[in-house]
């Protein structure tokens, strides 16, 4: 659906040029909810704007729904943009106008007939559950309601793709969740492919099926959400994953670990879905001469699956601990050793 190939984009800055994108490639399939995560300045905003031509790459190509953007003339580009909705962090609505007027605008721009506009606006407002606010002024709405209007406006022209620019970053956690559920509904019921950028890993966890991690103008890691959360490689990815899944020995138990005189290892275990069939931890506990101490355990839901995370302290002779590690790996759980300062 969306193919970005080797995109490079440099902005001329005051003192030095800003390299927003350094050879970035991205592939979004139809039906994806694809998340791009990164700290501010990582280039994700520029990457998002390549898709609807608000930014043009210095080199590289962008292909959306089979059309290469660089080869389109102005009119063709405007036409394509009507098939790509966009939602913004600051909503970017006309505050002094009614909800109806805002949602109708893209349809008026496209030259749709008044009667049809009325019907279509009602449809999308019903979809975002704001029917009764049709005649309210945007300035009278709450942040969550404004974003619903923003989504309704983006959906009015029945786009195939929805771009979300930090759509939930200005909202409180509860409203964020409601808006994310709405985006999920847009994806499932309307079949709209969603590309979103965020700096909140919770957003990725809650609705995305694929994720790309950006840092300094590069995609440093990408894959399915379960893969990336399960085995984060790049340091920046680990930092992001850590905001959702704790991968460190809990502060309170550090003392316990430090005080332990016998041979030990602290292991982080991740079980995804039901891929581990055997009662692994129970088996470890039954190992003669091996002491198993659970320092932490959480369950994360993502991508319709469940990820259980354990932090285990394994105490025993070196060979016993090594055998236990082997057993864990053989069972199919994701495992990594955690280190601590003595």
């Amino acid at each position: 659906m969306i193919h970005v190939e080797h995109a490079v984009k440099t902005f001329a800055g005051g003192q030095q040029a800003v390299h927003a994108l350094r050879d970035v490639s991205l592939h979004v399939a139809q039906g994806d909810i694809y998340g791009i995560v990164g700290f501010s300045g990582a280039g994700k905003s520029t990457l998002l704007r390549l898709v609807n031509g608000l930014e043009k790459p210095d080199s590289g190509t962008v292909t959306v729904a089979g059309q290469e953007l660089g080869k389109l003339n102005k009119r063709e580009l405007l036409k394509l943009r009507r098939k790509i909705g966009m939602v913004f962090q600051q909503f970017n609505l006309l505050e002094g106008k009614t909800v109806f007027h805002n949602v109708a605008l893209p349809l008026e721009l496209a030259g749709m007939k008044k009667e049809e506009i009325r019907k279509r606006v009602r449809e999308v407002l019903a979809f975002v559950e704001l029917e009764e606010k049709q005649d309210a002024y945007v300035s009278q709405l709450s942040g969550g309601q404004k974003q619903r209007v923003g989504i309704a406006r983006a959906l009015a022209t029945s786009p195939d793709i929805l771009l979300c620019d930090e759509a939930t970053s200005a909202l409180d956690p509860q409203t964020t969740e409601a808006i994310l559920r709405l985006l999920q509904k847009v994806n499932r019921e309307m079949g709209v492919t969603i590309l979103l950028i965020t700096h909140q890993m919770q957003v990725i966890q809650m609705i995305c099926n694929k994720v790309a991690v950006m840092e300094e103008g590069k995609v440093v890691e990408e894959g399915s959400v379960l893969e990336v959360f399960g085995t984060p490689r790049a340091e920046v990815t680990r930092r992001f994953v850590r905001t959702v899944i704790n991968d460190r020995i809990p502060e309170k138990f550090l003392a316990v670990v430090r005080a332990e005189q016998r041979n030990q290892q602290v292991e982080l275990l991740k079980f995804i879905g039901d891929q581990v069939q055997e009662p692994l931890i129970a088996q470890l506990c039954r190992t003669e001469g091996l002491e198993v101490n659970i320092l932490g355990a959480t369950i994360q839901e993502m991508q319709g699956s469940v990820m259980s995370v354990f932090i285990l302290q394994l105490i025993g002779e070196e060979a016993l601990v090594a055998a236990a590690e082997k057993k864990i790996d053989a069972a199919g759980a994701l495992r990594e050793r955690l280190v601590w300062d003595a």
Partner: peptide
């Protein structure tokens, strides 16, 4: 932002 939204909607 308003102008960007306008551009984005074609």
């Amino acid at each position: 932002g308003i102008i960007e939204a306008a551009q984005a909607m074609g």
